[in-house]
Amino acid sequence: MRMLLCELNRIHSHLIFLGTAALELGAVSMFWYCFRERELIMDLYEMVTGQRMHTRYFQIGGLAEDIPEGFYPQCREFVEWMPHALNDYRTLLDRNKIWLERTKGVGLLSADDAIALGQTGPILRASGVDWDLRRDQPYLAYANVDFQVPVYPEGDVYARYRVRVDEMRESTRIVDQCLRRLERLKGQPWITDDRKVVLPPREELHTSMESLIHHFKIVTEGFRVPEGEVYVPIESPRGEQGCYLVSDGGPKPWRVHFRAPSFVALEATATCTHDALVADLIAIVGSLDAVMGDTDR
């Protein structure tokens, strides 16, 4: 389920990229279409978590709630619809002369440069480096699903667009596979029963002393994390999102640092804009998909 939501989020992120990048190059209708599908994803999110953005559903140990009734059919509907939507996008853009002129051969980034600049995710794959943490360093259940990693060697804005559209298609496939598996797992517990990290259910508080103590400890203090430092990377829609965490053994982290893919992507702007026109800057920054909230964290 976490993986399913991660992939939905990936589609959502790429949709916003596609919508806004095309909008910036003058293709306004792409924006409407992409946001139409985005609203479908937002509906699913709202159904599961109760909120559109800033959801809090993943939890240490599992999920915060059970998957609600009606999620499966609606998600299935979305999975069936999404490939058609992707075809729509490609019909709109693939032979669009303006789009091709503005994107092909613009913002070139060679594979060596991309690696030296620490680029990850779609930007690296659009430069011809076959690298995806979901496949190469699997987390969650990515080892158990079947998906392709799209790679384009050109390294221009157009290749980045192609990579993202293909990734949306692959993500839809992953969502589909997750759905099939989840439907078989209906009725299973959605969170671990390790009471050191997860709050006990409400009704247990009235009958069990240990539950009450655990509840009190987690609420007032949190749980203790062993001393040490870790760096955990995942493949976010924009590339490698890493979290570096130092713990001194207490319930609050000593230092948290996020490796933001946008921060690194924005750094590549200078290299990409080499020999480019000022007007292409919009296309290039759009294609690097740098989100400022991610950049300054």
């Binding site: 620490g118 760096y231 990377p233 890493g242 130092v246 000593w254 230092r255």
Partner: peptide
């Protein structure tokens, strides 16, 4: 690749 550089 230098993935991240972080000081504490």
């Amino acid at each position: 690749m230098l993935v991240d550089l972080v000081a504490t």
